[in-house]
Write a protein that binds this DNA or RNA. Structure first.
Length: 674
RNA sequence: GACCCCGUAGCUCAGUUGGAUAGAGCACCAGCCUCCUAAGUUGGGGGUCGCGAGUUCGAAUCUCGUCGGGGUCGCCA
C-alpha cells in the first residue's frame, strides 16, 4: 500500500505545527461534505484549544509556511477549517497509476504471516440449511476472504454437531424408511429434515404419553403411541384435573400436549404421506422409542457400536453433502469438517472435567456439574484481560443424569483446534445467543491452564435472523431453505432475462450469478450486530437489490472496454503507457469515482480490522453508484478529446479492477453481460 | 433481577479515531434511451438521529440515566 496523499499532507501540516507551537495534538483530515469546501479538510479547533489561539490565526500561520506542491491547487480558511483544493489531475494520475500497476488492486501481504481458522455454518446435520443459517455462512466466508485477500492463510472449518439429543430419532426414522425401500422424495438434506420434524414430534408425543402412563392415565381411544387427537387431549386434561396432584406439572403437560397436537396437525398437512408411512412403521416396529433412542445415543456417544456408528454417519454425511451443495450455490466452500462425535471418542472430556474439578472450578449439584465461570475468570485474570466487570453466570456442563453436555465437547475441541491448522487465531462464527457458552469455552481453557490458547480464540457473534411474517422451526419443518431462497431469486431474475436476446446457457449463468450476489449482498450490507427480519421477497427483488447493481456496473464498464477496438482504441496499449497520459478531469462524476477508488485498500483493511464485512459492501455500493453516474455523465468512447478519452478509459479500467477486488472479497461473481 | 445487542425519513439501511447544511435504496410525484446495455440516471417532497441530562469550541457518534425491541442467564445445541 502506498502512503496516502491525504496522510502525507497531514504529516506536512503536523510538522509545521510542531515546529511553530511545539504541540502534541495531531490534525485529522476528513473529506468535506460539499465540493465548495474543497477536497480535504482539517479542523483546527483542537489545536486552537491547546495553544489558546483562534483557529483562524493558526490557519494563517500554517498558510505562511506551507510550501505548496503540485498536488494542491488552493488552500482556504473557512470557519475554523483549513480547506484544501487538490489538483484533481495530479491526484487522478497518482491514484489511477497506482491501480493500474497493482496486480490486484488493494490486495496485499500484510497478513502473510498469519494462519487463521474460520469456523462457520456448523448447522445441525439433520435438516437443510435455512435462511437462519445463511447469515452465519456468508459472514464467515467473507471474513475468511478478507484475511486471504490480505495474505493470510485461511482454513475454513465446519464443526459437525452430530451428538445432539434430537439426532437419534432421525437415524431411527431414516433407517425404518430405508429398510422399507421408501425413496427420498427430495434433496437428501431436505428429506432428512422432514424425517427430523416427524420423528421429533412422534418422540415427544411418545414421551408425554409415557409420562401419563406412569400416572396411570391411559386413553381408551388411543390408537397409537405416536399420535394425538383432540379427544385424547380432552381426556388427558380431564384425568389430570381429577388427579389434581401437582398443578404445576399438569399445566406443563397440558401445554405440551396442546403444542404437540398443533405441530402434529401441521405436519400431517405438510407431509401427509410421509407422516403416515413413518407413523405406521413406528407402530408396527418400535415398542419403546425412548429406549431405542437412548440405546442409539449412548452407542454413538462412546463410539463402540460399529453398526450404530455407521448409521449415524450415513445420515449426517448425507445431510452435509446437501449442505455443501447449497453452500456452493452461494460460493461458499469449507476445507475441513470436524466431528463432535470424534471429540467425544477421544475421552478427553472426562480428563478435562476431572482436571477442572480438581482445581475446584466445578460446582456439584447432585450429578450435575457447573463450570464456575466467575471464580475462574476472577482468579486467573480473565476479567481484567477482557474487561468484564460483572458476574459471569455459571454454566451447566453435565446434566443431572451425568451426561456431558455440548459445552464439554466444545472445550475439548478447542483444546486441539488451533493445531489442526497450526493456526495463530481461530474465529468462531456463532450466533449471539450462544454468548455464554462461547465465553465459557475460553474461561474453561483458562481454568485448564491454557490461557494462551484461549486468548487466540474468539467468538465472532452476530445477531440471529428472523423471518418476516413467520417463524422458523426445524422441528415443525417450518423454514425457508437456502435452496428455496435461491430458486426464488433465480425465478425473479429469469423474468427480467426474458426480454434479453441471450442463449439459454448464458441466461442460466446470469441468473445463477445474480441470485448468489443478490442474496449475499442483502445479508452482507447489514451490520452483523443488527437483528435481521429476513424478507425473502426483498432479498430477491432485483430492483431493490444491490448485488445486481454492482454486477451491472461491472458489465457496463467491461462493455465499454470491449467496444473500444471498434473505435480503434487499443485499451491494453493505452493502459501500458498510462504514464504518458495527460490526465484531465473535467467533470464532477470523474473526480468522484476516482476519489472513491482511492479509498479501496483502506476500506478493506478497516473492514478486516473491525471484522465488519458490511463496510466493504456499503463501500462497493458507493463505488458502483459513482460509476453509473460517471457512465451517464461522461461519454468514454466518444469523448471530446484525446486527453479525456485516455483519462476515461483509464478510469473504466481501474473501476473494473476495483470491482474485481471487491467481488473477490465479497464472493460475488463477475458478469460480462446482464 | 443481572448481563449483551439494537433504536436514524413511511419501509430497509449507511453515517470513519467526535467536525461544517445527517445520507442512500424502496415507495410516491415529474423528467431522460437516434448516443458505450434503462437491472441505469436527473429532479422533488419526506428527520425531535427513542427520550433526558452530562462532557466538549463542536455529539447521530463519547459518558450516565431512562423508555422500547431482541437475546442470554442450572439440565437443548
Amino acid at each position: 500500500m502506498n502512503s496516502r496523499i491525504y496522510d502525507s499532507i497531514k504529516k506536512q501540516l503536523n510538522e509545521i505545527l510542531q515546529k511553530k507551537y511545539n504541540i502534541k495534538t495531531d490534525l485529522v483530515w476528513s473529506k468535506p461534505h460539499s465540493s465548495d469546501l474543497g477536497d480535504l479538510s482539517f479542523p483546527l479547533f483542537n489545536v486552537a484549544k491547546e495553544i489558546s489561539q483562534s483557529p483562524h490565526d493558526i490557519g494563517q500561520e500554517i498558510l505562511n509556511s506551507f510550501s505548496k506542491n503540485d498536488i494542491i491547487d488552493k488552500i482556504e480558511l473557512k470557519g475554523g477549517f483549513l480547506n484544501l483544493f487538490l489538483n484533481q489531475n495530479e491526484f487522478a494520475k497518482s491514484t489511477l497509476l497506482d491501480i493500474i500497476s497493482a496486480e490486484v488492486y488493494g490486495k496485499s501481504d500484510t497478513r502473510k504471516n498469519e494462519r487463521i481458522i474460520v469456523e462457520h455454518t456448523s448447522a445441525n446435520p439433520i435438516s437443510p440449511l435455512h435462511i437462519g443459517n445463511i447469515r452465519n455462512s456468508i459472514l464467515g466466508d467473507v471474513i475468511g476472504r478478507l484475511y486471504k485477500f490480505l495474505g493470510a492463510k485461511v482454513n475454513f472449518r465446519y464443526y459437525v454437531n452430530d451428538l445432539g439429543r434430537q439426532i437419534a430419532p432421525v437415524i431411527i426414522g431414516y433407517f425404518l424408511l430405508k429398510e422399507e425401500k421408501v425413496k427420498p422424495d427430495s434433496k437428501v438434506d431436505i428429506w432428512i429434515g422432514k424425517i427430523y420434524a416427524l420423528m421429533n414430534t412422534f418422540y415427544e408425543i411418545f414421551q408425554v404419553k409415557t409420562e401419563l402412563e406412569k400416572l396411570s392415565i391411559v386413553s381408551d381411544s388411543q390408537s397409537s403411541f405416536y399420535e394425538l387427537d383432540e379427544t385424547e387431549l380432552e381426556f388427558y386434561q380431564n384425568e389430570l384435573s381429577k388427579l389434581n396432584a401437582d398443578p404445576q406439572r399438569d399445566e406443563r403437560i397440558v401445554k405440551q400436549l396442546q403444542k404437540l397436537v398443533r405441530v402434529q396437525d401441521s405436519l400431517k398437512e405438510k407431509l401427509p404421506q410421509l407422516y403416515l408411512q413413518l407413523k405406521n412403521l413406528l407402530d408396527s416396529n418400535i415398542k419403546d422409542l425412548d429406549d431405542l433412542t437412548n440405546k442409539y445415543l449412548t452407542g454413538y456417544l462412546n463410539g463402540k457400536d460399529k453398526e450404530i456408528k455407521e448409521k449415524f454417519r450415513e445420515v449426517t454425511e448425507n445431510t452435509l453433502s446437501g449442505h455443501t451443495e447449497t453452500l456452493n450455490l452461494y460460493n461458499i466452500y469449507h476445507d475441513d469438517f470436524d466431528w463432535e462425535s470424534e471429540v467425544s471418542w477421544t475421552g478427553e472430556v472426562d480428563r478435562i472435567l476431572s482436571q477442572l474439578d480438581n482445581k475446584g472450578f466445578l460446582r456439584h449439584d447432585g450429578q450435575a456439574l457447573l463450570l464456575k465461570n466467575d471464580v475462574i475468570a476472577s482468579k486467573l485474570g480473565f476479567k481484567e484481560k477482557y474487561n468484564i466487570n460483572y458476574e459471569i453466570p455459571d454454566l451447566i456442563v453435565v446434566n443431572s443424569e451425568g451426561i456431558a453436555l455440548y459445552p464439554c465437547r466444545d472445550i475439548a475441541y478447542h483444546l486441539n483446534k488451533l493445531e489442526k491448522f497450526d493456526a495463530d487465531y481461530c474465529i468462531n462464527v456463532i450466533g449471539k445467543d450462544q454468548q455464554l457458552a462461547q465465553l465459557s469455552v475460553r474461561t474453561a481453557l483458562y481454568g485448564l491452564g491454557e490461557q494462551k490458547k484461549a486468548d487466540r480464540i474468539s467468538h465472532y457473534d452476530y445477531e440471529i435472523v428472523t423471518l418476516v411474517g413467520g417463524r422458523m422451526a426445524g422441528r415443525e419443518f417450518e423454514y425457508v431453505t437456502c435452496d428455496e431462497l435461491f430458486t426464488l431469486a433465480k425465478n425473479e431474475i429469469n423474468t427480467i432475462l426474458e426480454s434479453r436476446d441471450y442463449s439459454a446457457e448464458v441466461k442460466d449463468e446470469i441468473a445463477r450469478k445474480v441470485s448468489t450476489s443478490s442474496i449475499r449482498y442483502s445479508i452482507l450490507k447489514i451490520d452483523p450486530q443488527k437483528t435481521v427480519t429476513f424478507d425473502a421477497k426483498k432479498a430477491v427483488d432485483p430492483n431493490e437489490n444491490t448485488g445486481p447493481f454492482l454486477q451491472y456496473s461491472y458489465a457496463r464498464a467491461l462493455n465499454i472496454l470491449e467496444k473500444a477496438p471498434k473505435k480503434d482504441i487499443i485499451v491494453d496499449e493505452m493502459i501500458q503507457s498510462a504514464k504518458q497520459i495527460n490526465f484531465n478531469i473535467k467533470k464532477e462524476a470523474e473526480w468522484k469515482i476516482i476519489s472513491i477508488m482511492e479509498e479501496l485498500p483502506f476500506v478493506i483493511n478497516r473492514a478486516l480490522d473491525l471484522l465488519k464485512p458490511d463496510i466493504v459492501a456499503n463501500y462497493a455500493y458507493s463505488l458502483a453508484s459513482a460509476f453509473h453516474k460517471f457512465y451517464d455523465a461522461c461519454p468514454v468512447l466518444q469523448a471530446e478529446d484525446k486527453d479525456s478519452l485516455e483519462t476515461r478509459i483509464t478510469i473504466v479500467h481501474s473501476f473494473v479492477k476495483s470491482l474485481e477486488s471487491l467481488f473477490e472479497v465479497m464472493g460475488i461473481d463477475t458478469l460480462e453481460k446482464m
